[in-house]
């Protein structure tokens, strides 16, 4: 018998409630399947996760078919507008959202802020996002995620960054994109970078992989496993700048396993309708006829921002090391 986490992926062990044995944490992990590019993602395949700031929005997201919600005080576009230090949300507000919906609830902590993570774990969130959208608390270290029972998601711009996060214990990876811009260009760049580096690695022999691991600053064993699988050893989501059903389907066709939609939904005119359309677009991402139907009459999308040196709030994707 092989457990779903039995690749050389880091496996967190949590004590089993009932007996003395230990069990691999059942965070989303790709089963080994047939090893094809699009295989297998725990129960987490093809899902949409939406940013929400209160219980009402959380219920709209659930009604629309979101598979999880990200509870936060301000969506990224507001963080850009307001500036200042962005921190973990008020636990009371997160608990209210946990009580309002039956789907899993995620919450963000600052990069390196392991105490915020301890607090989030204590109040019972289902996942923690160690997120560059909040102001980093540590400019050198990420959280040692092996110390936690709750699974973590982390952002990555390229393969080296993704594998460093996985080695620290991240249970799934997302692109960083440029959150709060409504501009998908950075998410596309990150996804293409990861895919292209994996293709490159999968053609290498072991000697070349040692050198490549050094070059991209990735742990060798994880790079070798990724090269063998021809995909990341954990699920890989798109995040940052996704505003339309077409954006979501684009990221799916580029090989993502699901999408995070942040400001794109509740900063648009008809949030419930757009939320539902994006959920359908992710399920039917390969069917342009369905994509055309769900894209009709959604009203104005959020106002997008071009990503240049004048971007309010600066480039968030460069946070993280």
């Amino acid at each position: 018998m092989t457990s779903p986490n039995s690749t050389s992926t880091p496996v967190r062990v949590v004590p089993n409630a009932g007996d003395a044995s230990v069990t691999p944490s059942v965070a989303p992990s790709r089963s080994k399947g047939d090893g094809s590019a699009n295989s297998s993602l725990g129960t987490f395949g093809v899902r949409v996760i939406m940013d929400v700031i209160d219980a009402d929005q959380a219920r709209i997201a659930e009604e629309a078919g979101a598979c999880a919600v990200m509870a936060l005080e301000r969506v990224p576009s507001d963080i850009r507008r307001d500036g200042g230090v962005a921190r973990m949300s008020d636990p009371a507000m997160i608990k209210e959202i946990v009580d309002a919906v039956t789907i899993p609830v995620m919450a963000k902590c600052r990069i390196g802020h392991f105490v915020e993570a301890q607090i989030l774990q204590a109040i019972g969130v289902d996942y923690i996002d160690e997120s560059e959208v909040l102001t980093p608390a540590d400019e050198e270290h990420h959280i040692n995620k092996h110390n936690f029972k709750v699974p973590f998601v982390c952002g990555a711009r390229n393969l080296g960054e993704a594998l460093r996060r996985i080695s620290e214990g991240a249970a799934f990876i997302r692109t960083k994109g440029e959150a709060g811009t409504g501009n998908v260009v950075e998410a596309v760049r990150h996804e293409r970078a990861v895919n292209s580096e994996i293709r490159k690695a999968s053609a290498m022999n072991e000697e070349e992989l040692y050198t490549y691991a050094k070059e991209i600053q990735a742990p060798f064993h994880l790079l070798k496993e990724t090269a063998r699988l021809k995909h990341l050893p954990v699920v890989n989501f798109a995040a940052g700048g996704i505003a339309t059903p077409a954006d979501a389907a684009l990221m799916m066709q580029l090989g993502c396993d699901g999408v995070f939609v942040g400001s794109g939904i509740f900063k648009s005119d008809d949030a419930p309708k757009r939320a539902r359309a994006i959920v359908q677009a992710v399920t039917h991402y390969n069917n342009p006829k369905v994509l055309a139907e769900v894209s009709e009459n959604l009203g104005p999308a959020m106002v997008g921002l071009t990503i240049d040196d004048k971007l309010p709030g600066g480039r968030l994707a460069t946070r993280g090391w």
Binding site: S31, G33, D34, N38, S39, S40, L41, G42, T43, F44, G45, V46, R47, G65, C67, T283
Partner: peptide, 12 residues
Amino acid sequence: LALQGAFAEHKA
């Protein structure tokens, strides 16, 4: 049923 979830694993 391949609308959402672990359908790829069942297929394998």
